[in-house]
Design a protein around this nucleic acid. Structure first.
Length: 294
DNA sequence: AACAGGGGCTGGAGTCCCGA
DNA sequence: TCGGGACTCCAGCCCCTGTT
């Protein structure tokens, strides 16, 4: 196995594939760690609590949902406040040169400008705040690494590829620390898109993004120029329009499909947003489809 | 249609933290 | 120490929704 001293070293010149060398969950309570370095690249992801990672002369505070990507051979140490335990997911990986199931990183960059820029970007460490994509990918990765399934190696390569794409996207969209509010708003939007069919309360969204609902409501409106309820309603109306034009589902059921339990209220809002009733919308859109087919 | 209760929205006050 | 930003909490008004 050949590890590289930096993530942006020779990856673009030869055929290399990521290989995970260590992965573990650990709750750090009270302990002492010296500065150290290793040949592997490391991701330290904070699941709960907080910690400080010292890199060179920098002290980097990592809170729940944030993580650090440390390049190989960068001296670092972990500092835990005795009163504030920290649960963390650690993954270490390097790169190997061998025939593999998937194209090498060098070829994948042809498909992604973000990935290309990420692998060329010179950094010793990156601190990023996750919007859940990284955690889901890391969790899938470690569960697969623990499995004994036949396709384990293929799945691990897929998850690692996915991880690199997410990291590349996040680095591109990396926000200054004082704009963390944007991350909360994005999480709230993700939550709305995943739960629009349920009876969502602002309180639920607040709990989902770990923020006081009143404050979340405020920053959401400030950034999006509309309230969470307005956003959710327009999302539901768009879904309803799609179901009306593309399916034969009864209108009363569509109201339930998009999370509105009241048919009357659904029709009222639909007319408010589209200036037509659900029935008229279905007739109009399906007539257009038939005309196109003829 | 009227009504009541629950939840959304908003302004303001207060706390905490950080940097100048 | 002070000011500003981030965040919480609360009160009051308004709208939505289910019931009668």
């Amino acid at each position: 196995m050949s590890h590289f001293k930096s993530i942006n070293g020779s990856l673009l010149k030869h055929d290399f594939y990521p290989k995970v060398t260590a992965f573990y969950f650990k709750t750090w309570i009270s302990f002492y760690m010296d500065f150290h370095r290793h040949d592997d690249i490391e991701i330290m992801y904070v699941l709960k609590g907080q910690c400080i990672v010292k890199v060179e002369k920098q002290s980097l505070l990592l809170k729940q949902g944030s993580f650090i990507l440390l390049d190989a051979n960068v001296p670092h140490k972990l500092v835990i406040d005795p009163n504030k335990p920290c649960r963390m997911l650690n993954i270490e990986f390097g790169f190997v040169e061998k025939n593999n199931l998937l194209p090498p990183l060098r070829k994948l960059i042809n498909e992604s400008q973000n990935l290309h820029e990420f692998l060329r970007f010179p950094f010793k460490y990156l601190v990023l705040k996750d919007t859940n994509e990284i955690y889901h990918t890391l969790k899938s990765l470690v569960l697969e690494l623990d499995s004994k399934e036949e396709e384990q190696e293929l799945m691990v390569q897929l998850h690692m590829t996915q991880l690199f794409v997410w990291l590349a996207r996040m680095m591109k969209n990396a926000l200054p620390q004082n704009e963390e509010a944007n991350v909360y708003v994005k999480r709230a939007i993700d939550f709305l898109h995943q739960n629009y069919d349920c009876d969502i309360k602002i309180k639920d969204v607040g709990e989902a993004v770990n923020l006081h609902p009143g404050y979340l409501h405020r920053i959401f409106k400030k950034q999006m120029n509309l309230t969470m309820v307005e956003y959710l309603t327009s999302l539901r109306i768009e879904k309803a329009k799609m179901l009306l034009s593309e399916t034969e589902i009864p209108i009363i059921d569509i109201a339930v499909y998009v999370g509105m339990n009241s048919r009357q209220y659904f029709s009222l809002l639909f007319k408010k947003y589209t200036e037509t009733t659900p029935l008229q919308y279905r007739k109009f859109s399906q007539r257009n489809v038939h005309q196109i087919k003829e």
